[in-house]
Design a binder for these strands. Structure first.
Lengths: 227, 227, 227, 227
DNA sequence: CATGAATGAGCATTCATTCAT
DNA sequence: GATGAATGAATGCTCATTCAT
């Protein structure tokens, strides 16, 4: 069977593996493959055999790197979340105001996830399925919300229900984006609604949430040598 | 294999089947069984064989009543949604103010669904999986939100993103309730946050959302004769 | 369930049952239904449930009349063969010459069976599957062939292989007719080839086999009262 | 479970697999198993599980080698037909006279197929079920018949009905051989009848069809190492 | 006799996982 | 590490057959 191009090697994990050993590269390819398949078909429907085929390794090889499907799902989710949080954090390093930080975080999270549907889909599923991961992301969120209270911008208590609700709103919008139900403006609208909910005056909420912000895209470093 | 009691016969569908024919009773038991399993494991993971086993019928019997898994899922979802909407609607027949209607709907929807975890879980999955069903429920929601605008209580436009976001908030809270993450007060808190988001002043939102309301429970008619 | 017309009651067995008791009529309807289904889908693929549904009786009723699927298949085959032989025999009562009898038998058998595809198909399957039935039909055939030898028209010995081969030729042509591979003239051609094989001079064979013969159709007596 | 001998490894495909890889050997065993079962029970009645059991592999293994039952049936049929045609063709390479070729083809086809009942049975079913395969074999037949006309030996037109009828005669005889109804002489007798049908004078037909011909057997290379 | 719900073995097929090479 | 053939339990679904009514 001749397969002309090592497509799988193009994914984000594979790409960062250019100077790793063969073993790490294989692992990266498996994660790339899994990312795409989980996102497109969900965890249940993606078979290990298919992951291996897309990764262009023998199916048995999968088990040299991951104990089972569960494990690779966790690894994929963790890796994505890590990356997303890292980029989000970097992009907001110099923003102080909680109103800005909060709306930017929501908008960028959605845009980021939607810009790379494989990642976004997998991330969505992952946040859904792995409570731990959710907790991780939430830590950042809580800090920003708390900051808003301290700054006097938010007028409601930052409790667990608020955090969960805030997250649900963001994830709901992401889901609609991924489904194609709503366009890019949905992110702004949700951010606006979140600010309103937090107690930001309507006009201020609208202004902040719809303000133009420089686009952000997942940086992708091409693989030096394919496969 | 020791199975202590005909559990399946206890479900809400089976219970209403006390004077139906044998066939309808079996169908009801299958729906009860499916309801529980879909709620606990989701549509994919619940196998027809297991549904049949829980319903205490032979696996082939399933197919005398439903064409396939898809069909029973639809039947379960429809039946639950119907019931929930019916009860919600009845309970709010005499409430005119949108602020009250909106917060009551959210709170009661969550309480109702959480009071019968099987139903609630299945409903949650169903709303998730069957867009049609979601649309149906949303119709009621949109009407109440629009009413709030007309009454001057809500200060934001009622667009699709708002509706989706509102739904996400409710479903998110329901999910947490079903998971045990939050207690009954979560429903009030979310209702409050929704009102804030819609533009209701903080004090009014809090008052309306936390006001004591008479409890509502899915009425369950016990089976006259077990099995 | 409202089903407008008792279609099944229109079949040849049902039709002759107009003055029989209810039980016999049910049996006839089952046989009609089975005839059609066996012919269209074969013995394996026709399910008892479907036979019962087409016959418009409950599936359990089937077993009040036939021990199993095998038995109804035998009954159907036997009944058809009987009818075909009866009609063939009647139509040739006054033909004495073996050359005529032989070619007429082949042609009429094919035409008859092809004229009523349900019957024909079932007959074909049956002859194939039930050796006994084949033997029955063959008795007539052997008599005619023997007669030809006695009359000096056929120059080859009438042994078992000849009989089988003769039958294969006829059945092969019937099969092609039922498949639509060949048209009505195939029956003549096969009859001609059979005569040649038996030793009839080419010209005589051709003349006899292609001579116009009055058409023959399975007589169908309509049911006095449907159902 | 006591299973006395690895029967499956004895089949013609398995036997030629002695120096193939493990995968090819398993495939061969599956084809051997399928050949026997198709021949004995027909395509419908032979289950994949049974094929796997006879081949002494797990049922899932089947699907690593064939997409479905259809595919293995095609593979078996093709392989057999190919082999039979190849051997038949080789054996008649130097025979020029159509009378000889025709009768030899019929006799050898029957003998060959009957000599290896599994193959023969499967071949019979296959010719029956796969029109394509039939067409392939028929091409050779048509050429020989045409040659007879050219040589002035056959006095009838070579049309489609003739070809079909000729085939039916051969297949009918093969069927009887496989059933045990007739002995080896049936092949000669049918060949004789075919020649008579084609217009060969009775004496010549008899002489040609019953002439001693060197036996031919499907060459079978024993497996070097069992299993 | 007729009914039709119920049965349960059986079927084709999938897939996570193992293991000899 | 990597391979890929093999495994076998499990799944959705069909259907001949039984039996209480």
């Amino acid at each position: 069977m001749t397969r002309s191009a090592p497509i799988a090697a193009r994914g984000p994990f594979g790409q960062q593996a250019h100077e790793l050993g063969k073993s790490a590269r294989t692992r990266a390819r498996l994660m790339d493959a899994a990312t795409g398949l989980f996102a497109r078909q969900g965890f249940e429907a993606a078979s290990v055999n298919e992951i291996a085929k897309v990764a262009e390794v023998a199916n048995g090889t999968f088990y040299a790197h991951f104990r089972d499907k569960e494990e690779i799902a966790g690894a994929v989710a963790f890796r994505i979340a890590e990356e997303v949080v890292r980029q989000l954090d970097a992009a907001m390093a110099e923003v102080d105001e909680a109103v800005e930080r909060t709306s930017m975080a929501t908008r960028r999270f959605i845009d980021l996830a939607a810009s790379e549907p494989d990642w976004g889909g997998a991330l969505f599923r992952a946040v859904w399925e792995f409570r731990d991961l959710r907790e991780g992301v939430i830590t950042y969120l809580r800090a920003d919300l708390q900051r808003g209270v301290t700054q006097g911008a938010f007028t409601t208590e930052i409790d667990d229900v608020l955090i969960d609700t805030f997250s649900s709103m963001t994830l709901g919008a992401l889901f609609s984006r991924l489904q194609g139900t709503h366009g890019p403006e949905a992110a702004c609208r949700v951010a606006e609604l979140q600010l309103r909910m937090l107690g930001v005056p309507a006009a201020r909420a609208k202004a902040a949430a719809w303000r133009e912000i420089p686009p952000l895209r997942l940086t992708i470093i091409p693989l030096a040598k394919g496969g």
